[in-house]
Structures are given as C-alpha cells and as structure tokens.
Design a protein around this nucleic acid. Sequence first.
DNA 1: ATCAAAATGTGGTTTAAACAACATACATAT
DNA 2: ATATGTATGTTGTTTAAACCACATTTTGAT
Lengths: 219, 219
Amino acid sequence: MDIDVLEKSRLFQGLTAKELSLCLDSLDAKEKKYRKEDLILHAGDTTDKIGMVLSGSVTIESNDVWGNRTVLSHVGKSQYFAETYALLGEVLLVDVRANEDCRILFCNIRTLLDDCKKSSPWKEKLLKNILIISSQKNLVLSGRSFHTSPKSCRGRLLSYLNAIALQTGSKEFDIPFNRQQLADYLNLERTNLSKELSHMKDEGLIEYRKSHFKLIREH
Amino acid sequence: MDIDVLEKSRLFQGLTAKELSLCLDSLDAKEKKYRKEDLILHAGDTTDKIGMVLSGSVTIESNDVWGNRTVLSHVGKSQYFAETYALLGEVLLVDVRANEDCRILFCNIRTLLDDCKKSSPWKEKLLKNILIISSQKNLVLSGRSFHTSPKSCRGRLLSYLNAIALQTGSKEFDIPFNRQQLADYLNLERTNLSKELSHMKDEGLIEYRKSHFKLIREH
DNA sequence: ATCAAAATGTGGTTTAAACAACATACATAT
DNA sequence: ATATGTATGTTGTTTAAACCACATTTTGAT
C-alpha cells in the first residue's frame, strides 16, 4: 500500500508510522481495484467505509428512477467519498463509478463512533481529522447553498461577491473562478451572468475586470 | 445553568455529570443574555465558540454591502450555531441576532482540535458528538444542494422524489412537507410546483394525493 | 351539516433566465 | 505582426418560471 501517500493525506495526517499501521489494521483497511466504468457503490445501499482514491479517479453520479443520469462530481487522487454516509450509516443517494481504472482504499470509520472503553492516541487524532474534513465540506456546501438560494441572477451575484468581501476583509479582491466556472457555481448561464455584471457596473454597484472585482457601497 | 438540558443535548449527550462539569470548565463555557434584536455575532468576525440556545431563539441573517437583509434560518432552544466557523476559525459570513430575549451558552470548541498530550474520556465523547452534528448537517446541506441544482422545476422535483424513494426504499412514500414547504425547500414558487406536479401526473410519471407520492417507472 | 379557514390547483400575464448566434477582447504560438 | 484559440461580452429570440387572481378541495370547529 501507498504508505507515504496515506501519511500525507488529510485523513491520516499527524499519525506516526506505528499509529498509522495500528489504525489501518483497526479500521480493517482494504485496497480494491476497479476497471473503468465499474460501479463502486450503488445508490440505495449503505456502507460503513470511507473510500479514498489511491490512483485514478471516480465520478459521483445520480441515476434516478426514470433513467436520467447526472454526473455530480469527480473525486481524484487522495480525495474521499462516502465519508458522511459511512459515519452515519445513511442510505447512499448517489452511485460511485470508476471514471478510469483505479485503486480505492476502504476504511471502516463507522466503528470510530462506537462506545469503546480504551482510547488510543491514533483514534483521537483520526476523529479530529475527520471532523476537520467534515467541517470544511460543510463550509463549502453551506456557502454554495447560500449563494444559490436567491432566485435571480443578481441576487446570487450579490450574495457571492459579498461573501468574498467578508472572507478577504476587503471590498476589492480576485475571485478564483472565470466566468464559466462562476456561472456553474451559481447555477446560472454564462452569458446571463456577463449581462448582469455589466448592468451592475452600469448602475455603479461594482467595478470589475476579468476576475478582479471591486464593490461600491453607495451612501 | 440548565444542567439537565445540557445532559440531553446532542452536544453533551453520553457524558456523565462529572465529565460534563469538567468539560464545561475546560471549554470555558459561559452563559450570556441578550435582548431582542441584539447582535450576537457579526459577519466578518471570527469566533472560537459554538453557541447553544438555552432559551429564546436567534436568527441567522445575511446583511450585504448594499444594505439588503435576508433571514436565512432560525435557531431555537437547544440548537446550535457557528459550530463550523468556530472549529475552523473561519470568517463568519452571516450575522446572528436575538430573535427574542434569549440566553446563549458559548463553548470554546476550537481548542478541541489542538494537539494535546493527555486525552480524557469526555474529550473523545465530545469529539464524536460534534462529528455527528457536523455530518448530519452535511447530509442535509448536500441533499438540498443536490435537489436545487437542476434549473427546471421538474428537474428539482425528480431529484427530490428520487432521493426520498431511495431513503425509504420504496416507490411509494409520504414526504414531510406540504406544498409551500416543498416549494421553499426546492427554491420554487408554490403554484408552479403544483402545476408541474399535475403535468407529471398527466404524463404518468407519478401519482400523488397531498403529501403521499408514488413513482411510476415506465418500461 | 354548515361554515370558515387553510391548502392546493388552474389559467392567464409578466418577467427574467435560458439559449443561440455572433462580436470583441485577450492570450499564445509562430 | 499575424494567426489561432479561448474567454468574455452583446443582442435578439425562445422558454419557463414568477406572479396574480381566483377556483376547488380539504380540514377543523361549531
């Protein structure tokens, strides 16, 4: 197994080599190989295991009752999937499929939440690491949910730009998206986004050039 | 302080009375009182403390640079706010305001993630509890993000209904919303939702009456 | 059973987003 | 400097959601 990769991963970081070994053993860590297009996890199932992509990549898909398929996200090397489902034992709402030939490390993290007399240093470290992973995902999700709640193009832009201003602590900043990416992030169509941005510029709400923005608070 | 409430709360549950006492001490737990309309936390600040509502309620609001206010959610008795921001030390993107006179318990949970030689039983239990809280929120958020991603009314309905079918393991189920609530959840307008549901019924995709639905997979 | 109130559904109009086709600006390689 | 490709912006058309007014159904109280 790719011990060096694991030591640097967000899941296992901070563990000594010895702790890592104990931990992998205790979590019943198993590596599995998949061929491109293989179904790795199936919607409707439950799982106790977090999946970590050791090589290759997987896609998270939704396939509904009426036969519509939507690709929701890609998970690449040293990233995770199914961590929330595994912890809570909830039914998977998505399929996980091999996007290319890949190797996946499965670790049973559900047992981490069990009552257990003896505590160990690796356990506490691992709990912290998972908590950080979960919280970060939370932040990303709530941000997006927040910015896509307004129904109008302008509302979403205002929400997003305002958040970045708060995060950077400045009314002037660069955003990490180009127009297409921003449109995708806000669930908008690119040309409408451009349209709305120029209107907002015309009205003196903002100034921008490429990905550099300046918010103008009138008084 | 309301020890009996705390013992039953999701944050502290499973801790013995003695552990709880140690824990509150170690987390520097402090109760504060607020008057209706008081600003409790301010967007742009950072905090190390999770807030637990002991009595009354608070609102989570967004107030942007241009003066628009949006109420995002209510947090009632024995519910939490700011837990993710506190853990990660991230800048708050929202204001928290007293919706009525209230008492809030603040606990410094950021220190939980610090490296620390000595581990204690309460610490591990607390980490588990917070991880569960965080994961559950994650599940809620990712579900909503998922169902509001499609741009069309029908797309959102299909996504939502399909998810419930997976969760319940059946093509026939009751949903926990009335029409208005479902519309709010999916970021749609109620009458459009009704319209779309009837169309879907006409096309033989679904059957429903009130909050009872049946999905029909054609073949 | 009758009435009032709430929830749900329907039709028509308005509005704004999606879409399409194209123009302009910008970056890069030759 | 020119050509090529990519990112961004503009204009016009189509489409569907929001909105409004009201009809129908359901619920619950008397």
